[in-house]
Each structure stands twice: as C-alpha cells, then as structure tokens.
Design a protein around this nucleic acid. Sequence first.
DNA 1: TGTACATCAGTGAACGCGCGTTCACTGATGTAC
DNA 2: TGTACATCAGTGAACGCGCGTTCACTGATGTAC
Lengths: 230, 230
Amino acid sequence: MATMTALYPTASRTVSPTVSAPSVTATPRRPRAKRGDGDRLRDEILAATETLLIQTGDVDAVSVRAVAEVVGCTAPAIYLHFVDKAELLLEVCGIRYRQLNEFVRTAIANITDPVETLRASVRAYIQFGLEYPQHYRVLFMQPGLMDPALWEALRLQGISGIDALVDRCSRAIATGGMRETDPYLMAVGLWTMAHGLVSLRIVKPRFDWPDMERTIQHAVDTHINGLLRP
Amino acid sequence: MATMTALYPTASRTVSPTVSAPSVTATPRRPRAKRGDGDRLRDEILAATETLLIQTGDVDAVSVRAVAEVVGCTAPAIYLHFVDKAELLLEVCGIRYRQLNEFVRTAIANITDPVETLRASVRAYIQFGLEYPQHYRVLFMQPGLMDPALWEALRLQGISGIDALVDRCSRAIATGGMRETDPYLMAVGLWTMAHGLVSLRIVKPRFDWPDMERTIQHAVDTHINGLLRP
DNA sequence: TGTACATCAGTGAACGCGCGTTCACTGATGTAC
DNA sequence: TGTACATCAGTGAACGCGCGTTCACTGATGTAC
C-alpha cells in the first residue's frame, strides 16, 4: 500500500510535525481532564479526526493511533469515548453533513424566485463540496460510510438534502415553466450533475480544468436551461 | 479496518470458494509453465486481478496475496512479472480504459448528426461506467491511480477520451446550433455530468434511485437541451 | 544416444510494518465519615 | 480538619492480523557436447 500511495503524492501518511509533535524527543501529553470534564477529550478527539481528515485527504489514512497522537493521548483512551473507529468517523462526518445542509439553506434564504432558488442551491452545494473536499469525499465518494444507517438517521432529523431539493423542484415545477414534471427525477438530475463536478474536481486535481467559476456556471446554467421550457 | 468494512457489507474481503479453493484441504497449484511460456502466468495474474477487482469492488481489497491465491501460485511469483503492485493495477485498469474508449467509439460509429453523436457518446460512457463499476471506480473515483503518468501515456497513444470528446464538441459547435462556443468547457461539462450519474449510482446503490434508463435519459437530454440554442 | 549443465519458472520462509482493539493497571480527584 | 475510599480518566504493553516485499532455494526443462 505504501507503493500505491507513493505513486501519486497527494498526502503524507505521517502527521505533519506542526500538529503532532513540536518537541523532538517526546510527544507532549495533554493534561488529564478534571473530574466532570470527561467529555472534553471527546471533543478534542473529534477535532483531531477532522484535522487529520483534512490534512491527509484520505479516510484510510486516519488511524486511531494517528488521532491519539494529534490529541496527545494514547490510542485506548479513544475507546473510552467511542465504541469503535467507525462511530468516530460517522460522528465527524455527520457534523459536516449538517453543516452542508445549513450552508445551502442560508444561501437561498433571501431568494424568492423558485428557479433562482434551485440555481443558487445547486451552486451552494458545489461550493461547499469544493471548500471541504475531504468531507465531501467521506460523505459522497466512499462506499459504506453514511450508508444507510446515518443517512436514514439524518433524514429522520429532517435535514436530508435530497428531500429539501425535491421540495424546491416541486415549487419550480409549480411555476409552469419547466419541461420535466417529476420533481424527484429533476432533483436526482440536479444532484448528480453537481456531484459530478465536485467529485471529479476532487479526484482529478491534475486534470487541466478550465477556470472553476466559469466551469460551475456553465454546468449549472446549462442544466437549468435544459430544464426550462423552450 | 475490519469494522469499517462490516459497517456496510458491500463485498467480502475473502475470496469466494468457487474461485479460490474448490478443495477443502489444500489450494490447488497450477502447473508450472513450460520453458517459453513464461508470459502465461502474467496473463493469468492480470485476469485474476480483474476478477478480484470485480468481486470485491474495492482496490484496497485486492492484495498481492489474494491475487496469487486466485491464480494458484505464490505471492513472490507475481514479482517475476510486475515490478510492484502498482504496476499490476495500472496494467489492469489501462486495459479497461482502452476498452471504454473503444466502446464509445463503436457506439457512435454510424451516427452522422453532430449533436446526436454527442448525445450517444455520453450515453455510451454512462452505460459503460454502470456496466463495469469496479473499473470505473479505479479509473475515475480514486485518487492516485491513473494520475498523471498513465493518463498522459494513454493520451499520447491517442486514445484519451476527453480529447475525442472535445473534438465532437467542436463539430457540434460548427453546426451553429449551440449556445456555448468553447468546445473544451462544453466537453468538461458533459464529462462531469456523465461522471456524476455514474459515480453517485456506484457509491450510493441503496439510494432510492428512479428507473435508471429514465434517469440517464433525463440527465443527458436536459444537458443537451441546455446546450442547444433556444 | 547419453549426460553434464545453464536457465527458466517458480517456491517457502521470513522481514518489518501499521493496524484496530483488549486488558490489567495507575494515579489524581472528589466525597463520606 | 483529617483521612479512608470509590471513581474517574486515563496509561502501557500486548494481542493477532494482513500487508508488500525480499531472499535463498529448488526442481523441471531444454541444450551443447
């Protein structure tokens, strides 16, 4: 696997010195939490996992040991706060998923026109994906994670992005200006289009991309144009 | 990692009995190749890697040892034919990449109308991706592999898909019926759209997808409609 | 026609590594008497 | 106000595992004399 990673130097598997161990001789230990502050380490673990995810850009590179090193505790200490590694990663990504939905909601808050709402929400989705590529990757570019347990849990919390998008599509259809009349099919189409741009950009950074703002605009506008009645 | 895999049972890490070891007691050994037949094992290794890639659906699950077991030889024997694991995987995926381009070429062979050529080529790309999801994943959904060495090598061989697509876009623009006049931007838009559908379908199989033929048609037609002058 | 010998196509055992996780423990902290 | 004690928040060492890769070897196969 070392060879595979070396093939294409996206990220180092070792933790950067600035984060892990400023001292050369020994890893600095964080002070033990006070009696009631048991949850403080939990938060620090979540933050460290987040940091590692961003730094390495690869879930597989985030090991329990690496997280522990960043936090400044030992690996077993993590198991005092999470039943296993999967729960830890799920928690980290769930946080970011909620943030994605919130980001889109905020972006369209002041828009009234249904078609423009659609356009803005897709643009916001793409923007968020490109801003947090590592989280986007965990959420939407890897099998397993977020599927299907957490996904369902988030849907029940009423913050599922696709449900909200279907809703927005329905409103756009109601204006009478759209070719397609099935809001679900329309939502899936918009989602896959946005996902294609984000994910391909993330996975092929060395591809000769045109200016990104122009690329996003062309992709989104072309799709929206195609949805509108001629 | 075992826990992570168990979270979402896409594929078993162990080789299915029908392929690996029909006998209960011992792994059957393939007969040693004759003097001049040294390359026979090479082909068998490539085929076995392909098989494992499809069975497990995960490059990381394809270990040198697993390949050896399927072939019926020992792990070190693989190093007689490939310098390392990366070269082996690169070879396997390169074969499939050439096949993808060939598949698209064949699909549009008898079409004369430039816009319909565009439509058909994108549809063929999506179709291929959904038919060989594991290879598509290796080629376009994982960082590192195919980047940038092999990609460049294939481009030089004149079989790069994006180059051909840009060419087809130019022809479509030449008809005078398109809104966009930059063939490269247009090609990237079409590619990302197709990629979005294929990759999201692969990575989220449990999502409540509409009928796939209908989904493909809607996505492709919407995009093409959006490209055409109103 | 027989035999010594180079070579080809592998094998078997082992290397060091990092992984997730478990288990027995420790030492500071707060609390009850 | 002092002290025994339960508990909380961890530690340190070790487990078994699978990985990519290396190295010394072996035994069948073809060839030269």
